[in-house]
Amino acid sequence: MKNFPTVLVTGASSGIGKAVALRYLKAGSVVGICGRNKEALEEIRLDHPKAYPLIFDTTDHAATVSAINQFIGEAGPLNLAILNAGNHKPTDARDFKLSAYKAILDINYFGTLNCLDAVIPAMQQQGSGTIAIVGSVAGYVGLPQAGAYCASKAAIMRLSETLRAELRPQNIDVKLISPGFVKTPLTDKNDFEMPFLMELDAATDRIIKGISGHQFETVFPRRLAWSLKFLATIPKSFYFRLTKKMLRDRPDAS
């Protein structure tokens, strides 16, 4: 595990964010644990004096920049930022609601941009840093009932690729984390079968290893990633026949 003295983790109140934050805290890092659930973050601080709870909503640009800058001002140079905050709720064009699509894009994509607006200038000023952005294998292809989520994660993938190319000359490393289904409070809400579901500890191991390594993307589980990448390469006529079978049973499904 690579040593990062100062770490920022968004979405740290539960799930992947919390698990990753705890790993770095146990390794001795000072960690800014970010989220909206003040009670959950304060509970982490009780057992970990080096945890700095930062209570804000990443969709609030001003609050996000202010909180991150405050943490850097108190903790010192930011060595690693893990931008993990996100959400998923099913969306369906057969019952299209603009607000549902915008809500997913606001947190998954624009919330990440809000964080970057504080993180990138700070790392440019100090002359180094690592940014790990959590996407999803869902970004490889559009899937039924997940149009907004897939779109947001595809945007994260393309964003991460360009950031890595543009920021490497400034000694800022950008990494993309692309998980599949991981057992967390968020996936516990799903009412459908989740292929290759991974336990949280195993997923956390992969993420920590990926951040410490030299590769750009850390993706897991590979069998699910390969399946989705395959879907993205086949002729669209065949792809649409397959996705039709994925649609949940509804009277208007056709």
Rank of each mutant, 00 (worst) to 15 (best):
I131W: 00
C34N: 08
V7H: 12
L113D: 01
I44V: 14
Y149R: 06
A155K: 04
S254K: 11
P5H: 14
D60L: 00
T64V: 09
P251Q: 15
G111D: 02
R23V: 03
D106M: 02
R206L: 11
L80E: 00
K38R: 15
L113F: 03
I156F: 01
D201A: 14
R164Q: 12
K245A: 15
V31E: 12
L200F: 10
E43R: 10
S254Q: 15
P5S: 12
T58A: 04
L46Y: 10
R222L: 12
H214L: 09
N190Q: 10
R23L: 07
I207C: 06
G210K: 02
N171V: 11
R36V: 02
T233Y: 15
L242D: 14
P221L: 07
A151Q: 01
R250M: 14
R168C: 05
A21I: 10
A85C: 10
P77L: 05
E42T: 04
G127S: 07
S227N: 09
G86W: 01
L159A: 05
R164A: 13
K38H: 12
D117F: 02
S160G: 10
G139M: 03
S14P: 06
A40M: 09
M198L: 11
L186T: 12
E217H: 06
I55P: 00
A148Y: 04
R222C: 09
T91M: 08
A155S: 01
A225C: 00
R206K: 13
G11P: 02
M194C: 09
P77D: 05
V219W: 03
G15P: 01
T10F: 00
E74H: 15
A85S: 14
T184W: 14
L197M: 07
L116G: 01
A103K: 08
G210Q: 03
P195W: 04
A202E: 15
L22N: 10
H61R: 14
P90N: 05
D57N: 09
P179Y: 02
K183I: 03
T184V: 04
G135S: 09
L25E: 13
Y24I: 01
F238P: 08
L197F: 07
S178R: 00
L80F: 04
N84F: 12
T130P: 00
Y101W: 06
P185L: 13
M157V: 15
A85D: 11
